[in-house]
Computed example of a mutant assay.
Amino acid sequence: MSTRYAALLRGINVGGHRKVPMAELREVLEELGLSGVATYLGSGNAVFTSDSADERTLTRNLERAIERRFGFAVDCLVRDAAYLRSIADDCPFPAATLEARQLHVTYFSEGVDPERFSAIDRAAFAPEEFRLGDRALYLYAPDGLGRSKLADVLARPGLTKGIVATSRNWNTVLKLVELTTD
């Protein structure tokens, strides 16, 4: 049985560094034998169909293929359509009433212990706030990510040490759900 997936690439095409043209990324995915390949925006979002049910193997294969093709390592996450839908459905904030720029999701390669974030004085950042989900962190930043002091704290390397973390705005979260839904 075939499954739709999204691949989330971390830290590419930012400030002219680590260039991964989307047309070439689509070629890489197709060379891996994946079908229904499409990309969304130029920031490392791709969707595809695979007969494999093993997200870890799909991730490793994609990371190796990208490094061979472009000459540098790129951390990737591969998530199936059901997971992406659950992230959107389980949003702890009133997404329908917010502007997309106010809501972001950071996807993690694995579940995180809430203890990682216990030193953050949440009250000091109000009205900004975050909540943990299934291998994800939801961030509400009413003035947008660019002005968010909480986002800066959450992005500190110590908080995500040992795991891959990559963020998407709410529009992209919803678009990936749409692109992976049959």
Rank of each mutant, 00 (worst) to 15 (best):
M1N: 05
M1L: 11
S2N: 09
S2M: 11
T3F: 03
R4F: 09
R4A: 12
R4Q: 11
A7C: 02
L9G: 04
G11I: 06
G11N: 11
N13P: 01
N13W: 07
V14D: 03
G16E: 06
R18Q: 14
E24G: 03
E27F: 01
E27N: 11
L29S: 02
L29N: 00
L29Q: 01
E30R: 14
E31I: 02
L32C: 04
S35W: 00
S35M: 03
G36A: 10
G36Q: 10
V37P: 05
T39L: 08
Y40K: 06
Y40D: 02
L41N: 05
G42L: 07
G44H: 10
N45A: 10
N45S: 10
N45W: 06
V47T: 14
V47G: 05
F48Q: 09
D51H: 12
S52R: 08
A53N: 10
D54L: 12
E55S: 15
E55T: 14
T57A: 15
L58K: 12
T59S: 14
R60M: 14
R60A: 15
N61P: 00
E63H: 08
A65W: 03
A65F: 03
E67T: 09
R68S: 15
R68E: 14
R68M: 13
R69V: 09
F70S: 13
G71N: 12
F72N: 10
A73S: 14
A73Y: 06
V74G: 08
L77T: 05
R79D: 04
D80R: 13
A81G: 11
A81F: 01
A82T: 12
A82L: 13
Y83G: 05
R85M: 01
I87W: 01
P92K: 07
P94Y: 01
A95G: 03
A95E: 08
A96W: 01
A96E: 15
L98M: 09
L98G: 04
E99N: 11
R101K: 15
R101C: 09
L103T: 10
H104A: 11
H104T: 06
Y107W: 13
Y107Q: 04
F108A: 04
F108Q: 01
S109G: 15
S109Q: 07
S109I: 08
E110R: 15
E110M: 06
V112G: 01
V112D: 00
V112P: 01
E115D: 13
S118R: 14
S118Y: 00
R122C: 02
R122Q: 12
A126N: 00
A126R: 12
P127S: 10
P127N: 03
E128P: 00
E129Q: 15
E129P: 00
L132Q: 02
R135Q: 13
A136G: 03
L137K: 07
L139V: 12
P142T: 11
P142V: 12
D143Y: 07
G144R: 06
G144N: 06
L145S: 09
L145D: 06
G146V: 09
G146C: 11
G146P: 02
R147Y: 07
R147C: 03
R147D: 10
S148H: 11
L150A: 08
A151N: 12
L154W: 07
A155N: 13
A155G: 11
R156M: 12
R156D: 00
G158W: 05
L159R: 12
K161E: 15
I163W: 04
I163Y: 05
I163K: 04
R168W: 08
R168S: 08
N169T: 13
T172S: 13
V173K: 06
L176T: 01
L179G: 04
L179T: 03
